[in-house]
Design a protein around this nucleic acid. Structure first.
Lengths: 152, 152
DNA sequence: TCTTAAATAATAATGGTTTTTGTTTAGTAT
DNA sequence: ATACTAAACAAAAACCATTATTATTTAAGA
């Protein structure tokens, strides 16, 4: 299983004994339809259009549930809030260290790298995370303008 | 540059115009001598023995400075805590998804295959992070005991 | 339709990190 | 060695993403 779809989500929820609610389905669809991996608050802001009384706590609860069911991956960061990735298979997250922009990348070698490392580690991991840091076009301009000063 | 040492830290601080203080040196030594990547609070608790009046804010400031100087990597996690790794070269962090225990791993093929991916991406990353999730011995026992129930 | 455990909404609480402010100190010049 | 000054420090308050709590609502089976 690589990228979840709604059929899969519904089946998994039902099979695991959880209820199928409109809120849960909408949260899933929002994550699936977004290219960058949204934060909990970004999901909350979007879902407010369709569910004006939804609580941010519900968003968090649902995200944690989907994570436990293995339907998405939570990417924690030091300088920003967590982001949620519906792709749980080995792939590369290209991240701007300045603004946090993320996009996914699936190098041909990624899965090969993964399987070789897994073989060398002598155990079967339950998951993985591959991040690559690269200044996006916007931030690399700002960065080069400030790079001569002692900036902190 | 892979794993920092004290000589290197001192040179880097001086060259960058920052002062050499006992607090900064002690924090560096603690990180360098620790096998697992400690949290800010774990460093704070240890350093209290030698500097009973040190502030937690000083620990954070120092860690951020060392990060900016490229001397260590900050690993952010979903539970909003960070851990600090003096090894900034491509390596694998083996992490227990339950308790957060971490240890480093340097598979022979990691660097080789990593550079191949970098070549395929057509840019030179400014950093990277490779996490592999594996339940530690302690947590895998607990996990198997609870796995039949709907646990959350 | 009825029943009930689960899910939701609203709100308060939590806790890691950052900011602020006044004091101390490392590094340099005298 | 002493004095000077910007930087670093300690202490405490503030911040804010996330989690816990509680009362109300709802999905799903009888």
């Amino acid at each position: 299983m690589m990228l979840m779809n709604m059929q899969h989500v519904i089946a998994k929820l039902r099979h695991s004994g959880y209820k199928i609610t409109p809120q849960r389905l909408e949260i899933c669809e929002l994550i699936l339809s977004s290219q960058n991996h949204p934060t909990a608050d970004q999901i909350y802001q979007k879902i407010l259009r369709k569910f004006p009384t939804i609580s941010l706590a519900t968003v968090y609860q649902t995200l944690h549930l989907l994570k436990e069911l293995g339907l998405l991956q939570e990417l924690g960061f030091a300088d920003m809030s967590s982001r949620y990735d519906p792709n749980t298979s080995p792939h590369v997250n290209v991240i701007c260290p300045k603004c946090g922009q993320i996009y996914d990348c699936e190098p041909k070698r990624a899965k090969e790298l993964w399987s070789q490392i897994a073989a060398e580690l002598r155990f079967k991991p339950v998951g993985q995370r591959l991040d690559v840091y690269k200044y996006c076009d916007k931030c690399s301009n700002i960065q080069s303008r400030n790079s001569e000063t002692k900036n902190r």
